[in-house]
């Protein structure tokens, strides 16, 4: 999230969303939300589930959501972790895109209209 600078109004709106879901009040711990956002350091069955949300959400099944519930994670916690996983995966792409734009502008993107 460091590459999304406040040079445009998107920077502040983006940061606001990230700060809220990772650092604001929630049912799940901030550590678990950050792990879902990063898609790393999660216990099973959360790890397999969050990986699917991040990389192939269209393949998520009822059974996988049920398995996470059965493992003792509440619906509100699951809601938060799914949001963090989705925003995290999309953020990594977004930042890669912004970094490529910054690099293109630095090295001779000057004729940009």
């Amino acid at each position: 999230m460091d590459t999304v600078k406040d040079t445009s109004d998107y920077g502040a709106l983006f940061q606001n969303l990230i700060n809220r879901i990772l650092k604001g009040d929630g049912y799940s711990t901030a550590g678990l939300r950050q792990a879902a956002f990063n898609n790393s350091d999660l216990p099973e069955p959360l790890h397999a589930f969050i990986t699917k949300v991040a990389n192939a959400a269209f393949k998520v099944t009822d059974g996988e959501v049920e398995a996470v519930k059965q493992s003792g994670v509440s619906e509100d916690e699951i809601f938060e972790l799914i949001v963090c996983a989705a925003v995290g995966a999309a953020s990594r792409q977004y930042e890669n895109g912004l970094a490529a734009l910054a690099e293109a502008m630095q090295e001779g993107g000057q004729h940009a209209s």
Partner: peptide
Amino acid sequence: NVTNRLADTFD
């Protein structure tokens, strides 16, 4: 990319 993941995960 956020909304698509939520749409499919929440079904």
